[in-house]
């Protein structure tokens, strides 16, 4: 009864749901069932708690120091309804960061759970590991890694501002897709402060093994950081032309493509 599509070979080129076949104008039963299972799994991924202790111990093993902070959000339900609270640190966290501040760093990396703690669990440490050699090459001073619970992207501006960082990179769980519950986004901002908005940030999205690989994400971030420090800008005025070798300064890919 099902009319199959005669281009199943195209499936090798994409993870998208193509060549599904049809019954009349409708999806075959097995595709309806597959879709509803994926949706159920993505829904579940949104609500998984952020295990920052696990990430902290991995970072400590790499010789990096960490600080754990919380936004003003109390629980997941509030996180979903009140993004404004997810952009502000709670009082305790502000005090903690103020106390920890000693001298300005070139870069503060923040790991925030965002909408998928599964993404930060799997991708964040790998990206940082791949980034460290570039930072060394750039002679960039990295501050403590900040682990942020119930975080929105703009929470990084407040963190960077308290720590007087020259730049920040927020590694945050992206909204889970049906086919990718563990996708990480990276937002880089030059001179973070509370007047920054989306146009001031450079974004590297879909960081995961099946998407933008850790090594390539780290290279892109390093390229943007170098250009950002040279030009003293970030955001829409700083174009990502990292794949144009002629435009590179110090930063060249360390990995083999």
């Amino acid at each position: 009864m099902t009319l199959p599509d005669n281009w199943l070979f195209l499936k090798q080129f994409t993870k998208a749901r193509i060549a599904l076949g049809r019954n009349g104008v409708s999806l075959p039963t097995n595709e309806i069932l597959n879709f509803s299972l994926s949706h159920a799994q993505a829904r579940d991924a949104v609500h998984q708690p952020f295990d920052s202790d696990q990430i902290q111990s991995e970072l400590h093993k790499m010789g990096l120091s960490t600080l754990t902070v919380h936004s003003c959000v109390k629980n997941r339900e509030e996180y979903l309804r009140r993004p404004d609270l997810g952009r502000k640190l709670n009082l305790e966290s502000i005090k903690k960061l103020e106390k920890a501040y000693q001298n300005p760093f070139d870069l503060i990396i923040i790991i925030g759970d965002g909408l998928s703690s599964y993404a930060v669990d799997r991708q964040a440490v790998c990206v940082i590991r791949a980034l460290l050699p570039y930072l060394k090459k750039l002679n960039m001073q990295l501050g403590p890694i900040i682990l942020a619970h119930q975080a929105r992207v703009a929470l990084g501006d407040q963190i960077g501002s308290i720590l007087r960082a020259k730049s920040i990179a927020m590694l945050i769980g992206e909204r889970p897709g049906l086919s990718s519950a563990d996708s990480l986004g990276i937002y880089m901002t030059w001179q973070p402060n509370d007047t920054r908005n989306d146009a001031d940030r450079n974004c590297i999205s879909n960081v995961r093994p099946e998407g933008l690989k850790h090594d390539l994400a780290a290279f892109k971030l390093a390229w943007l950081l170098e250009q950002s420090f040279i030009k003293q800008i970030s955001g829409v005025r700083l174009k990502d032309e990292s794949d144009n070798a002629a435009l590179s300064d110090t930063i060249k890919p360390l990995y083999i493509a």
Binding site: T14, A16, R22, V25, S26, L27, E31, F35, H39, G177
Partner: peptide, 25 residues
């Protein structure tokens, strides 16, 4: 129209080619 209603880049669900066929029919 997104293949299978599942946008694998933007991570959200839209409507599929089949959905358009449905509406046309």
């Amino acid at each position: 129209n997104v293949p299978g209603a599942d946008d694998i880049m933007l991570n959200y669900q839209s409507t599929s080619f089949h959905d358009a066929l449905y509406l046309r029919r």
